[in-house]
């Protein structure tokens, strides 16, 4: 497999195609996913916003670890990405 072939990650159990060097946020956005978190108070959907790690709106659970910033975390083959509800704990 060459690096341009890419790989797959899972979002709430569904396969998402991914390329080398992509962040989790880039992979979800490319797949048409717009939200992967609900807020603590209003249970409103949120996703990527600032894209550079300062707004903390794109928090997501990856491989069981909650509250990671999807815009910063590099995607790795087989990552299990899950929608995060509230603080995710």
């Amino acid at each position: 497999m060459t690096s341009t072939d890419g790989f797959e990650i899972a979002f709430d159990g569904a396969p998402i195609p991914c390329r080398d060097g992509w962040t989790i946020g880039a992979a979800l956005t490319a797949a048409g996913v717009r939200s992967w978190r609900t807020t603590r108070e209003g249970q409103r959907p949120r996703g990527l916003f600032c894209g550079i790690g300062i707004c903390f709106d794109c928090l997501v659970t990856v491989n069981g670890r909650p509250s990671l910033r999807a815009c910063l975390v590099a995607a790795a083959p087989g990552d299990d990405v899950r929608t995060q509800h509230g603080s995710g704990r």
Binding site: G21, G25, A26, T29, G47, L48, F49, G51, C71
Partner: peptide, 21 residues
């Protein structure tokens, strides 16, 4: 402005430039 699909211009540029998304 909190709806998914609203981004900062920098986020849109970064996704486009760094990831081609």
């Amino acid at each position: 402005w909190t709806l998914p699909g609203v981004y900062t211009a920098g986020a849109v540029q970064a996704l486009h430039k760094a990831h081609g998304v």
